[in-house]
Design a protein around this nucleic acid. Structure first.
Length: 419
RNA sequence: GUGGCCAUGGUGAAGCGGUUAACACUUACGACUGUGACUCGUACAUUCGAGGGUUCGAUCCCCUCUGGCCACCCCA
């Protein structure tokens, strides 16, 4: 067996790239309308960046990072998510000083050493957006509106938006205590993992899928009931804005995020069509992150969507491109004039295909059909001599005689587009 | 990291101890020597993931390895 790709690292083949391009182009278009600019940051960062931002005790940092030493002995890591790198760049280049509010988006590969399965790979792709510098609830709502617009424009109304608030450093500790107290009374009913997590990350128990834990935590105290005044006010305002903007959402008081830096508003787009990989997009507010990374106290909120998962949801519902014209060449003598015509039409912006193997006319026609070409014409000695060609519309087989001239042909072909 | 399932051509797959390794799709060419789709014809796996074993004989049984998928954990 020859060399194959690394497990969990996939080739994205020509049949799949159109969906990807559709997702990326749609994201660029929607983000652009919300005033976001693209930022491109490296795929590799110093390991410490992720430990500090994502959190030392998270699964990502504990067991899923691709970490290695370079020749100088520094510990480097393939980014497992996008926010940390973007915030590092924001701090490093003092973007917050250029403009108090920064609206940035990115797209690209992320790396997590997990067991691959449907919709989850070791190299996977995210499209994300971050908005820093403002903590007003209208910012949260704007980002949510943008996410919701993006999915609408992609033609996906199925993933549903769920929101929650995780509170802030002022109110979360008290809630955490209340939750631990609650859980400790139900020790016996909890699974091994949840018992172990009680000290490290008790909130996780709310997210546990083991039936016993679901039962045991059904009456658990909710963060939403323990928010401090400011957090509660913030969260109310976010919801009001969302309602005003007609963004559909539901509350999920049990939603927990996997990264430590989240505060206040968090959200997920959940689908029931991808089996266990339910989260298609997710994000939240991270008001302490920039300071935690050594920058000024700049608040922020962001989200990321999984391109593989979105592509899976889209299936074949994306715009397909097909050639405008296929020029079938009847005889060697006509190859050069045919190529000249092709050049003229390409220059006018048309996608033109022609024979490149010296195939029979029948084969060329078959190929024109297979490519889905909208029009086809046969160029032979007669056409070159008369200066007239028969242009055939492949869809219905209708034909018309057109002057053998790039501009004349282009007029009919693009005119046919409107009809 | 843990569990389950599966490995036959470009693809989807039958075959389950002795077969020319079915069938379908795809692809190529042809049926009209200048017109696609439908139809019809022809061609396309000395070989069944790799290595070992059992057997007169193995794609079919056993072992090992490798690969894939799905699920758990967690996540986009």
């Amino acid at each position: 067996m020859s060399i194959t790709a690394v497990k969990g690292f996939n080739d994205i083949l020509p049949v799949e790239t159109p969906v990807w391009q559709f997702v990326e182009a749609t994201a660029r278009s929607v983000f652009g309308r919300f005033g976001f600019s693209e930022i491109r940051v490296p795929v590799v960062e110093k390991t410490g960046l992720f430990c500090r931002s994502i959190g030392d005790t998270t699964d990502i940092v504990e067991k899923e990072m691709y970490t290695f030493c370079d020749k100088a002995g520094s510990s480097l890591t393939l980014r497992p998510e996008g926010t940390a790198g973007v915030m590092r760049a924001l701090i490093e280049h003092k973007l917050y000083a250029l403009d108090a509010v920064n609206k940035l988006y990115y797209m690209g590969p992320m790396f997590r050493h997990e067991r691959p399965q449907k919709g989850r790979y070791r190299q996977f792709h995210q499209i994300g957006a971050e908005m820093t510098g403002a903590s007003d609830p209208i910012v949260d709502a704007q980002l949510l509106l943008m996410v919701s617009s993006l999915f609408k424009e992609l033609g996906l109304d199925e993933p549903r938006l769920q929101v929650n608030s995780l509170g802030c450093p002022a109110c979360r500790p008290a809630y955490r205590e209340a939750l631990v107290a609650f859980l400790s009374q139900r020790q016996d009913a909890l699974c091994e993992d949840c018992r172990r997590r009680q000290s490290s990350n008790p909130l996780r128990a709310l997210d546990c899928k083991v039936p016993g834990c679901v039962d045991a935590t059904s009456g658990a105290p909710a963060m939403l009931d323990h928010l401090c005044g400011e957090c509660a006010e913030h969260f109310d305002a976010v919801q009001n804005y969302l309602t005003a903007a007609r963004v559909k959402f539901s509350l999920n008081p049990r939603m927990v995020r996997g990264l430590d830096y989240y505060t206040r508003t968090t959200f997920e787009l959940i689908t029931c069509l991808l089996g266990t990989q339910a989260a298609v997009a997710a994000g939240g507010r991270y008001d302490g992150l920039v300071a935690q990374l050594g920058g000024p106290a700049v608040p922020g909120i962001g989200f990321a969507l999984g391109v593989e998962r979105v592509a899976l949801l889209l299936g074949d519902r994306y715009p397909a491109r097909t050639p405008d014209l296929f020029i079938a060449l009847a005889g060697d003598a006509v190859r050069c004039p045919g190529f000249s015509l092709m050049a003229g039409l390409q220059e006018l912006g048309l996608w033109v295909e022609t024979d490149c193997e010296g195939k029979s006319l029948k084969s060329q026609m078959r190929r024109a059909d297979k490519l889905g070409s909208r029009f086809c014409l046969v160029l032979g000695d007669n056409e070159v001599a008369s200066g007239q060609v028969t242009l055939k519309r492949m869809e219905d087989g209708s034909q018309q005689t057109v002057c053998l001239d790039a501009a004349a042909l282009a007029a009919v072909i693009t005119g046919g587009e409107q009809a």
